[in-house]
Nucleic acid binder design. Structure first.
Length: 283
DNA sequence: ATGGGGGCCTGCCGGC
DNA sequence: TGCCGGCAGGCCCCCA
């Protein structure tokens, strides 16, 4: 599921129940997910106030009153569920525990945040807040695509001479942090660039054009997520999954949506991942 | 350093 | 109905 827009949507959904609130009781139902949890994680979370809830790339970071920061990564199948809180006009009681509920944060005031992750590719870790930027998972990340450090000259410099397909380059979190398979497909479709094109073969103006397209694709998805947040207040409390219409992703065999194109969306596999693209529009 | 492939896990879906 | 292969929105690690 979660690329940058989905993670940002989860963060925004968690804000009203977590930011400024104390974790009254943390409970952990297994030793870890992708990696073992840090020693004594439940105890280190219990009693801590969440001073700020931030996002870096696809990671959610909760700065705690204890001087530590909680890192949360949703992996492929991680979900956050809020329960026991007045949400709009509806009150959500605590549902029965579900399979794969791994971590439960009981917040002061009665809300409950449950981290469920079937495939367990997700992660949680704790670090000193002052050293958060040097955490192994964060230290080598490229710039935020919606931030000032990501601009045309940066991307041109990073892609220059690169022999890897542009699809792989944009998926590389060291180059730009937060894009995943869906939004790279959508970006290349809008940019009319074939996913197989070697990154270093693109003209500077083509690379420059990618920057505002990446920003727009992500901003539109975040906007769609915001709409889903308003809807979810009257739905079921599960954060982060929202209906968003894609132009090429997962549309293999369907007609290209570009007016007058008439071609059929294709799919190729690059480094083990599906790339959806229009063979007519994307060159 | 760069690029490609394997592996981690479970669930779901389509075909037989 | 059941079984099986293929697939899934992420990311680390190892190899050439």
């Amino acid at each position: 599921m979660p690329e940058l827009p989905e993670v940002e949507t989860v963060r925004r959904g968690l804000l009203p129940v977590m930011e400024g609130r104390v974790i009254a009781q943390a409970s952990v139902n297994r030793d870890g997910l992708r990696w073992p949890f840090p020693p004594g994680m439940a105890g280190r979370l219990t009693g801590a106030r969440v001073n700020a809830l931030r996002r870096r790339s696809k990671y959610i970071l909760a700065d705690l009153s204890t001087g530590e920061t909680l890192l949360i990564h949703l992996g492929m199948s991680g979900r956050m569920l809020i329960s026991g809180q007045m949400l709009g006009a509806f009150h959500h009681d605590h549902p029965a525990p579900q399979k794969h509920d791994h971590v439960v944060l009981g917040m002061e005031g009665g809300a409950r945040v449950t981290f469920n992750d079937a495939r367990r590719f997700g992660a949680m870790d704790l670090m000193d807040t002052g050293a958060a930027d040097s955490h192994p998972l964060l230290a080598a990340l490229g710039p935020e695509p919606l931030g000032n450090a990501f601009d045309e000259s940066y991307l041109i410099a990073r892609l220059k001479g690169r022999n890897t397909p542009i699809k792989s380059a944009l998926l590389d979190q060291h180059i730009v942090a937060g894009l995943g398979n869906i939004y790279v497909c959508e970006t290349l479709y809008r940019a009319r660039i074939a996913p197989q094109t070697k990154a270093g073969d693109l003209a500077a103006r083509q690379v420059a054009a990618l920057v505002p397209i990446i920003r727009a694709v992500l901003a539109e998805a975040i906007e769609a997520g915001g709409s889903s947040l308003r809807d979810f207040r009257q739905a079921d409390g599960e954060l982060g999954y929202f209906q968003h219409s894609f132009q090429v992703y997962d549309r293999e065999g369907q007609p290209c949506v570009t007016p007058g194109c008439g071609a059929t969306v294709g799919r190729i596999v690059q480094s083990g991942r599906s790339s959806f693209y229009c063979p007519q529009c994307q060159r």
